[in-house]
Design a protein around this nucleic acid. Structure first.
Lengths: 156, 156
DNA sequence: CTTGGTGCAAACATTTTGCAGCACA
DNA sequence: TGTGCTGCAAAATGTTTGCACCAAG
């Protein structure tokens, strides 16, 4: 079975990140012999602007609304690069399309999804990480990351 | 935002289920004024045969290999019905297509995915359920289900 | 020049849908 | 005779790719 789960959410530490994302991206690109182009910068800027969960189409809108002319192809290509850099991650909780979110320097693998309103909250659950690590250890496995989505509605 | 996360994994209890799945399916269909047709029976049988994670195409193969002639459209339509009945659930951990698994009478929402071999183990984590419930309660929310995927590799 | 980047449109893969015919109450 | 079910093929969706042209070292 050939699984392509997207990059499993990177297990970055808890350290605060102060380096601007564009620098991270640029460095990551350079390491691959790739270029930090205006389009790529604009896309990253727009992602930061969106500040939360977003989908490709939405990102394209955002980029265009800022007066930049970037094609859909470039958006998708850049998303892949950003994922490779660990700056964003795919979320995969919607059956219809991929969602993404900023991931660099975070553990944004745990989401609380309010199914009635559509709100999504990013959680931090050290207990879950502990649970996961113990569980892997018991099986002789090395944890590479995880994804949790909790679905809930208002009790009212 | 209109989220369609697929049915959140149903929060069935821990009771052992003895009623055959076909009976569950038939009842569920009848409740909707729908029919338990040979095609639907064959598809459910094949799912039981597959016994684990599967994707639509794979299921279609299985059905055909048993000598039944069922169209792709019917497979997809039946998958949706089975999901509505709570008999199967979408898994959503692969970026390319939906995976499904039997869900009835289980809490199969927690998967341990071995990214190197592609093996997938279904886990039962009462601690996670407790954690989730506490967390929702603290926010005045009613938990409707969850999905967890843990990614790991062999420590070798 | 050579390498990589872009936009466009076409290609893709999975899933959904419109429609004509069929089956059974 | 009506309601639902099926297969087929066409459509729809999100994503990827081929290609011609552009830009920078």
């Amino acid at each position: 079975m050939a699984l392509k789960p997207g990059n499993p959410p990177p297990d970055t530490g808890d350290e605060d990140i102060i380096e601007p994302l564009c620098a991270v991206f640029r460095r990551s690109l350079r390491e691959e012999g790739l270029k930090y182009t205006p389009e790529r910068a604009q896309i990253l800027d727009s992602i930061i602007e969106l500040d939360g969960l977003f989908e490709a189409e939405q990102l394209l809108e955002e980029v265009k609304s800022k007066g930049f002319r970037v094609s859909k192809a470039t958006v998708y290509r850049t998303l892949k690069l950003l994922e490779d850099s660990g700056i964003i991650q795919r979320v995969l909780f919607d059956r219809d399309q991929s969602h993404y979110q900023l991931a660099y320097g975070r553990r944004g693998n745990t989401l609380l999804v309010r199914v009635d309103t559509g709100e999504v909250e990013v959680l931090e659950l050290p207990e879950l990480v502990a649970l996961r690590d113990a569980l892997c250890k018991a099986r002789g496995l090395k944890p590479e990351g995880h994804r949790l989505q909790i679905f809930a509605t208002s009790t009212k």
